[in-house]
């Protein structure tokens, strides 16, 4: 899977918290330090495989819930509570992905795709993310997203990603406060229409 994908809204990962996300089944831990910097790592502690998205943000590190191993912003292990005197080898690290925040959304790339480009400029605010229980391609076609996974419409940005096969997360952001309600309404309307069509087809 190549490219950049919107996996969450900026407002849904506040400073000092961690949150789960999935990208085509790949589990991702998003976390934000108290300094506001966002991180996207494989959702798996290199120690015992516990989900890092269950962890705590402590002293600028993400601490695993299971044994408390702490990983710094550069994803290397900084501290192992059971061996407090140990100088932790630099090879012990979480798997970090490329991450950027643009237009009120958190964008992740699982590969070496160059910097995120093409997106509109300006500070947009997240409106909401909602689950649409249809395949990603169906949602993209309905939203007239040609070759990309986002679309600007008036003062709003609609972007999609696939958490798992057959599911789509639709993320909505707006450049104006006035446009937020209308954007949310359109998103809900689209979801209801697509899911109704799916139900009809299955029936």
């Amino acid at each position: 899977m190549t490219g950049w994908f919107p996996v969450a809204l900026t407002m849904d990962v506040p400073a000092g918290t961690a949150a789960p996300a999935r990208l085509s089944g790949k589990e991702i831990a998003l976390w934000r330090g108290v300094d506001g910097e966002i991180h996207a790592w494989e959702d798996r502690c290199p120690h015992r495989g516990m989900r890092l998205s269950f962890g705590f943000v402590r002293n600028g590190n993400l601490a695993c819930l299971y044994h408390g191993w702490q990983f710094g912003a550069d994803s290397t292990c900084r501290h192992i509570p059971a061996h407090p005197e140990l100088r932790v080898p630099g090879t012990i690290r979480a798997t970090a992905y490329q991450v950027q925040e643009r237009c009120g959304m958190i964008w992740v790339s699982l590969d070496e795709t160059p910097s995120l480009s093409h997106l509109p400029e300006g500070e947009a605010s997240g409106v909401r993310s909602l689950l649409v229980q249809v395949p990603l391609q169906t949602a993209r076609t309905s939203l007239n997203m040609e070759a990309s996974n986002w679309k600007q419409q008036d003062n709003c940005l609609f972007a999609v990603h696939e958490p798992a096969v057959g599911l789509t997360m639709l993320h909505v952001a707006s450049w104006t406060v006035a446009g937020q309600r209308e954007a949310a309404r359109q998103a809900v309307q689209l979801r209801d229409r697509l899911e109704a069509i799916k139900e009809t087809v299955l029936a």
Binding site: A8, D12, A19, P20, R22, L131, M169
Partner: peptide
């Protein structure tokens, strides 16, 4: 899967911060 429900996660985070919040088996404090 709670990654599909961000507003629910936001609600849970605020709720767990209320004074007097208690847990039960299956509901961790964090």
């Amino acid at each position: 899967p709670l990654d599909l429900y961000p507003a629910v996660r936001n609600f849970m985070r605020h709720f767990k911060a209320l004074p007097g919040f208690i847990t039960m088996p299956g509901v961790p404090e964090c």
